[in-house]
Write a protein that binds this DNA or RNA. Structure first.
Lengths: 250, 250
DNA sequence: CCTCAACGAAATGTCGACAAAATGCAGTTT
DNA sequence: AAACTGCATTTTGTCGACATTTCGTTGAGG
C-alpha cells in the first residue's frame, strides 16, 4: 500500500478520508498543482473538503513516493522537476525494470501470461486521448496496470515497489509534457512487441525492447516539454528570493 | 529527507518534534518494538513525550521506509519480518548495489576516494560491540555511512534512496538477529577488500565482493535468528485469531 | 459444549483552537 | 538611494475533545 494504490485497483477500501492521497496524487500528476508549488494546507483543505489533519497525512504519504517534499518548519511543496531528475529517473528505470522483467520471464506461470495478455488487450482498447487534447485517465490507469502486470511475476515485492514509485514519477513528467497523441501509435506497437517477446520467453529481446521503450518515453517528454530542453531547472521554482539581498540563494 | 536522515549526518535540523522519527526508527531497528507489534498511539505518546499528532506523522514517514505498515481504520503496526522478505531484500540488494557501485567507480573523483577511505577508517576505529553483548549504535551509524559513501558517487539520487531503504531494512534484521561479535572480523576484512578493489577501479572485483558481502550478512542473520530458519513466518505474528472460528485465517 | 449475537470498551480518524516560527512590509538609519 | 531593524500577518506544528469504527467479552440459543 506504500507506493501506488492505483495499481491495486478498487480494493473497496473501507477507506479513511485519506483517500485524499489519490486525489492529491492525481492533481500533482496532472500538473494542477505545478512542481515547486507550496502546499498551504489551509487553502487546500476546503478544496478537498477535509480538514488539515488528513491533508497533512496525505502529504506525508506522497512524500514517501517522492511527489512531495517536506522542509521542517516550512511545510510541504510539490516536488520540483528537472532535466537531471528526469534523466536519472530514466537511467534507473532502464537498470531496474529489466531485472524484474528477466525474473518475471523466468518464473512467470500460465496464469501470469493470461494476465499480461488481458492487460495488453484492455490497454489497446482504450484511447490514449479522449476527444480533444485532454488525456484519458483510464488509459493512464490501464497503462500503469499493464507495466505492473508485466513485471508482476518477478517475485520481488521490493522491486515492484520501486518500479511503482519510478513509474509514477515518470508519469508525472509524461503528463506535464503532454507527450501524447501523435507518437502514441508507435508506443502501442512497442507494447505489443514487448508482450510478444515476453510470451516467447525471449528475455534478451524483451529487456532490450523495454529499455528502448523507456528511452522513447523520455525522448517524447523532452521533446514535448519546453522547460526541460537545455539544463533547465524547474520553471515554477524560478522565483528569485528578493527582499533579503545579502543571503545567498538559499 | 525521504529515506534515512541518519545518512545525512546531523544537518542541524531546526527540527520539528517529528525527530521522533529517528527515535522510533531506532526502537524498531533495535527490536524494542518487535515486528508485528501494534503501535497504539495513546500508549506510545507518553513514552516519547509528545502528543499523538507528531507520532502519527512519524509513523507515516516510517511507513514510507517500509518499517511500518498502515491499515486503514486499524492503525499502524511494526512491519512484519519473514524469511521470504529477508531473501527478497538480499536478492534486491545484490542486484541494485552493484549497479550503483559500478557507476560510482566509473564517475567517482579524487574527493570521493578520500571520503571512502575516511569512512572506512572511521568504521574500523569503532568497536562493533561495546562492552558486553549490546551493540554499538555508533558502529551501526558509521557502517551505514560507509556503504552510503561507497555508492555516493554513482550520481543517481534514486538509486541512493533505494539503497538507503534496503540498507535500513537489512539493518533491522541484522540487529534482531544480533549477528555480531564473532564473525565480525571477517566482515571488517570484507570492507577493506571492497575499498581496495574500488580504489583500484576494479569494478568487476568490487561488485563481486559487494555481492558476497551482502550474502554473508544474510547468512549471519539466518544463522543467528531462530525464527527465520525454515519457511517460518513472523514469530510475533503467530497470534492465532481465536474467538472467530469460522473465518479463514485472514 | 459449541456457535452465534449483541453489548461495552477501547482505539482510530477527524475536527477546531492555541503557541511558535517564518514571511512580508514598513520605518528608520547610514 | 540602499540596507538594516522592528513589527504585524500568515502559516506551521501541536494539543485536547468528539464521532465512528473495531475489538473483546458476555450472554443466549441450538
Amino acid at each position: 500500500m506504500v507506493a501506488s494504490s492505483r495499481l491495486r485497483g478498487p480494493v473497496s477500501e473501507p477507506t479513511l478520508a485519506s483517500a485524499v492521497v489519490d486525489r492529491l496524487r492525481g492533481d500533482i500528476l496532472d500538473g494542477v498543482l505545478p512542481p515547486g508549488e507550496k502546499l498551504r494546507l489551509e487553502h487546500l483543505a476546503p478544496r478537498y473538503g477535509v480538514g488539515r489533519t488528513p491533508l497533512r497525512e496525505a502529504c506525508c504519504r506522497l512524500a514517501s513516493e517522492g511527489l512531495v517534499t517536506i522542509v521542517d518548519q516550512r511545510g510541504f511543496r510539490v516536488a520540483p522537476i528537472s532535466r537531471a531528475d528526469l534523466l536519472d529517473l530514466t537511467r534507473t528505470r532502464q537498470q531496474l525494470e529489466p531485472l524484474a522483467l528477466r525474473a518475471a520471464i523466468a518464473h512467470g506461470d500460465i496464469a501470469w501470461e493470461g494476465e499480461v495478455t488481458a492487460a495488453l488487450h484492455r490497454l489497446q482498447r482504450r484511447a490514449p486521448v479522449s476527444g480533444s487534447g485532454t488525456l484519458d485517465d483510464t488509459w493512464e490507469l490501464e497503462h500503469a496496470r499493464f507495466h505492473a502486470t508485466l513485471l508482476g511475476a518477478c517475485g520481488s515485492p521490493w522491486l515492484l515497489k520501486f518500479h511503482a514509485t519510478l513509474f509514477d514519477q515518470t508519469e508525472r513528467y509524461r503528463r506535464l509534457a503532454q507527450a501524447h497523441g501523435k507518437a502514441r501509435r508507435s508506443v502501442e506497437d512497442e507494447h505489443a512487441a514487448l508482450v510478444k517477446a515476453t510470451l516467447e520467453r525471449n528475455a534478451e529481446r524483451a529487456c532490450a525492447l523495454l529499455t528502448e521503450h523507456i528511452a522513447r518515453t523520455t525522448e517524447l517528454v523532452l521533446a514535448g516539454h519546453p522547460g526541460l530542453r537545455a539544463s533547465g531547472a524547474t520553471p515554477a521554482l524560478a522565483l528569485p528570493t528578493k527582499g533579503r539581498s545579502l543571503r545567498a540563494k538559499d
